[in-house]
Simulated assay, not measured.
Amino acid sequence: MRFELRVPPLLLFVVIALAMWLGGGEGRGSGVLLILATALLLAGALLGGGALLHFAHQRTTVNPIRLQQSRVLVTQGVYRISRNPMYLGLLCWLMALACYLGGIAVWLGPLLLFGWLTRFQILPEERALRARFGVAYLQYCRRVRRWC
């Protein structure tokens, strides 16, 4: 497809977050929503940071556009929880922003990120990883869910 592996996920995240911020919400979240936003921020940082550390430790690329540079199939740490913890971290951060901004319309941002990443990033990545790592990747997919 035309958009597969073309838009860097971090760029997409920034554009959607900016649109959510500029579009505003019905007001600022309060009470339970702010506590939830804080928890989501922390979860996103732990997932994304943990994933980056594992990639650095394995000395493999984190570039989601150049999958052919992948040296190792990373399956440890946060990769036991999710096959896509970096993307899950970004999703957590957008959900935190939606909680902070308040309102229903801002939840279109996390939904858009989820749908776009699944269709145009994750599915093509899975095809490439299956081709590169074969049975090991298929076994990993049986043990660990795509998102969480």
Score class of each variant (00 low, 15 high):
M1H: 11
M1P: 11
L5R: 14
V7K: 03
P9T: 06
P9M: 08
L10W: 15
L11M: 13
L11Y: 12
F13Y: 15
I16M: 09
A17Y: 09
A17P: 02
A17I: 10
A19Q: 07
G27V: 08
R28V: 13
G29E: 08
G29Y: 06
S30V: 11
L33N: 14
I35W: 15
A37Q: 08
L40Y: 12
L41M: 13
A43Y: 03
A43S: 10
L47A: 06
G48Q: 06
G49N: 08
A51K: 01
L53K: 14
L53N: 13
H54F: 09
A56G: 03
T61S: 12
T61W: 01
V62D: 00
N63A: 01
I65N: 04
Q68G: 10
Q69W: 07
Q69M: 08
R71W: 00
V72Q: 10
L73T: 02
V74S: 00
Q76V: 06
V78Q: 00
R83C: 00
N84A: 03
M86S: 02
M86E: 02
Y87N: 08
L88I: 11
G89Q: 00
L91E: 05
C92R: 03
C92Q: 02
L94N: 05
C99V: 03
L101V: 07
G102H: 09
G103T: 09
I104H: 11
V106T: 13
L108F: 14
L108C: 14
P110L: 08
G115F: 13
T118D: 15
T118I: 09
R119N: 11
E125L: 04
R127Y: 06
R130G: 09
R132P: 05
F133S: 07
F133W: 02
G134L: 07
G134E: 07
V135G: 02
V135W: 11
A136C: 03
L138C: 06
L138S: 11
L138H: 05
Q139W: 01
R142Q: 15
C148W: 14
C148H: 04
